[in-house]
Design a protein around this nucleic acid. Structure first.
Lengths: 235, 235
DNA sequence: ACGCCTCCCGAACGTTGGTCGAGACTTCGC
DNA sequence: GCGAAGTCTCGACCAACGTTCGGGAGGCGT
């Protein structure tokens, strides 16, 4: 705490330099400068590896072989990193080829979107912030333009876009609940519900929590919503 | 680090007590002991007042007029508090009277559910965890039992329950995005989109982000899903 | 040679969630 | 009455976190 005179470590000072001290500082040679992109990529890796709790600025810096404060030259806050990471994974949602059928276009997109979020279970939990990243917007644009071809009233079109997106988000969120944080097995959970069959008869009888194929279930839900949409089409 | 001998503060020790020291310790008289319920209520108040960032164990303790470690006797971790607070607000979702029409029962419930989450915008962001609280389960039980009356195949019933719940959750989550955290006005956001009308023509044309009445939009989405559900009924 | 701009970092601050052991109040068996 | 066994509370402390500040190093133009 009292030692201040000895400027230890890294790259020493010029004016205060001790003779011969050059050899002590390791000259980190010319590595390509840090960039938002490299930070984003590293953040996604960390999040994928251990969930959203694993992303700390310190660990992120360590993984990039950099001191923590360095990050703040490229990024304003940790929230920035989260926004960037979130939008980044949406880049892997391939925008479908446009077909003649608006419904299959919309369906294909949201299914891919959903799959991506399930693959990155930390993502849905970060969704409680405005989604304005370019990748999100591009995919939403595709979704809305597909639904536009359905021939819906303007208000209904807006409902359809938001509804489909929200269904996707909600599904991804509830599914990710089981893959994130302190593992509670679905088995022990549905056992818990079955124990209370007296108070939750329907849930217990239908084994509400134990669903075999959640992806298929989501697909059916999308089909269902689209079917409802067709009843609102002009004819 | 070496000072340990002087046992300072509050209620002094019996064996180590200094004579007359009784008068110095304020005798906090018999207030009803802290309880999970009181902790939960205080947590909800804090969350309502300033969003999820405002809930720290210290502030919570302060509001309850208690030292921070005390909380940990009643609660294991902060996550416990979050789980409790989350389930607590669902108690205010009144379970509807059962009517003859399964669809209006289901609709009434999810609309109330949605409204409650919008009233507590911090809630949707906490949903990324298994929802096993008694209040959640009771409402899900009602929802599923209402949908059961629709006469759906077992698999479809499961889809319907999850789909409707997920639509509700997703809607609440995206809506709360604008009321939580660092305020980005929807106006500036949709302005941002309109600026890029070249890349997002459909979004810009339909003013995707600027929706007037989100509650009405959600209601229509629920109607739409229910309409789709009817096409899957036995007949 | 000088100053400017970019990129990076050591040190430190204030705050957080959480632990530990000790103390006080109550209750109960005796 | 008395001590042992809970029940409930707290002071002191810890490691880790996000973030700030001021400055040093290297490259570039002039």
């Amino acid at each position: 705490m009292e030692a201040k005179g000895l400027r230890a470590g890294g790259r020493g000072g010029r004016s205060g330099g001790v003779a011969g001290e050059v050899w002590l500082r390791e000259h980190k040679p010319n590595r390509d400068p840090l960039s938002r992109e490299r930070i984003t990529a590293a953040a996604v890796e960390l999040l994928d590896a251990n969930g959203s709790a694993a992303l700390t600025m310190r660990r992120l810096a360590e993984r990039l072989d950099v001191a923590p404060p360095t990050l703040y030259w490229h990024v304003k806050t940790k929230d920035d990193v989260l926004d960037l990471a979130l939008d980044a994974i949406f880049a892997e949602v391939a925008i479908p080829e446009r077909t003649a059928d608006w419904a299959v276009d919309a369906k294909t997109l949201v299914i891919r979107w959903h799959a991506t979020m399930v693959r990155h279970p930390w993502a849905p939990g970060l969704l409680g912030r405005p989604m304005l990243g370019p990748n999100v917007l591009a995919r939403t644009e595709f979704l809305q333009s597909a639904l536009e071809r359905a021939g819906l009233a303007k208000q209904v079109l807006s409902m359809a876009t938001h509804g489909l997106a929200n269904l996707t988000i909600g599904s991804a969120l509830t599914e990710s609940a089981w893959h994130t944080g302190p593992r509670i097995s679905q088995e022990s959970a549905s056992e818990h519900v079955r124990d209370k069959a007296a108070t939750y008869p329907t849930l217990a009888a239908n084994n509400h929590l134990a669903v075999m194929d959640r992806a298929a279930l989501f697909e059916e839900a999308v089909d269902c919503f689209l079917a409802g949409l067709r009843t609102r089409q002009h004819r």
